[in-house]
Design a protein around this nucleic acid. Sequence first.
DNA 1: CAAGACTACTTGTATAGACAAGTATATACA
DNA 2: TGTATATACTTGTCTATACAAGTAGTCTTG
Lengths: 242, 242
Amino acid sequence: MKTSTANAPAYANIKNHLLHQIETGELKPGDKVASENTLVNQFSVSRMTARRALTELQDEGVLIRTQGLGTFVADQKASGSMLEIRNIADEISERGHSYSSRILNLEARPASGYEAARFGVQEGSTLFFSRIVHCDNGTPLQLEERWVSAERVPDYLQQDFSQQTPNAYLSQVAPLTEADHMVEAVLPSHDQAQLLDMVETAPCLQVIRHTYSRNGMISLARLIHPGNRYRLGGHIQFNTPL
Amino acid sequence: MKTSTANAPAYANIKNHLLHQIETGELKPGDKVASENTLVNQFSVSRMTARRALTELQDEGVLIRTQGLGTFVADQKASGSMLEIRNIADEISERGHSYSSRILNLEARPASGYEAARFGVQEGSTLFFSRIVHCDNGTPLQLEERWVSAERVPDYLQQDFSQQTPNAYLSQVAPLTEADHMVEAVLPSHDQAQLLDMVETAPCLQVIRHTYSRNGMISLARLIHPGNRYRLGGHIQFNTPL
DNA sequence: CAAGACTACTTGTATAGACAAGTATATACA
DNA sequence: TGTATATACTTGTCTATACAAGTAGTCTTG
């Protein structure tokens, strides 16, 4: 899973640079980010290019910019849950369409330091990862990515998710009653090649990323429109107690 | 509440022009939109300015752009709703906290041309507007703004929203069964001074804007973080059939 | 007829500059 | 001391231009 640098556009490199700073903790919520002119000198680009990187990250909810003040890392905490995800399978059924799904990935892997901190587990402990495409009348409509803490749901990998959606299974086995709050920050970039194939045939692909950690469930949704391949649309961030 | 044209930035005028074309049906989903160069001549702006209007509308899901082909009106029907708003009062109760609310505004006013086009009513027809703060243990947590079409819910202003939330009332009186779709574009800016007072005492204020139009309900949610006073964080755009 | 080249049009990326406007700090003045 | 004022720095808007790259149709050529 490569993140670019080589042939990627200049503005994308700057975005990745800033995202990396945030992911490693070099920049924390509230910290001031390099100004446009600083980035101009640092990356030898024009101001409009540096500006595009900052503006897009602002649109994605990562940064906050204020005229006269500067650019800051957005505070991802604090937001309570207010939304809940509807079950995609139910929704498609209600619409009178046929629902089908395809499993792309289903694996266990040790949590990196970054993931461990984010999901509230120890570094190296097992995280389950799954990636499933949900189709409406055969057309890919939603790409679902889930990270599930092994401590919480040890049998996650053994389930047959073509029969029962992960959402249904997790609701049954790991109900959460308290409305806990969690932090979810910036999304690492997707494996884009895999996404592009699906976007070809989908009118508009919804990308949802679910994370089950010790404290609750976090979901992030984004939309990909055709012709908008590298730029992902606005994202939604919320936290849902099951 | 003014809608631009005069002192608004050029790119905003172009956006409104295109949105108006879509709202009036002059441009239908799938139709080809004026190219960048066409807009350059039409509005006497530079290509970068015309481009900004088109790009932002693409990010907002209104348009679809493809290199070499052109710009087209997006099909809003393709992506189904997937989210629903939880009742803030219920949520706070479930959390074991005390819920209270305060009404800031409650008024009827004629729809401006801009609002009329957006909400699907005639210019000058009555729109109800309310603004309510929902508090969790006395702390302002959510600012709710609603525009309600008078045609749809004539008695909106007569309700006692300290007893029953607008959401509960509207669900009861104006249920929508079809999953209609609508476009909501740019948010006009808030009355900022009023917001700032609340942000002072709130850890993170959720701003939700509900719009009941002829076709359905649109909700836009944004977060205000402390230290993020003037610029509101990323916004959420979705459409919920009740 | 079919394959390739050419052309016109489109959007994508990028530059270098200009002025406007919001914020905070330092400075001079009453 | 307190109030204006000047300033430096920031982001916001905008222009005019250039080249790259994708699409579709036409024209040339074998």
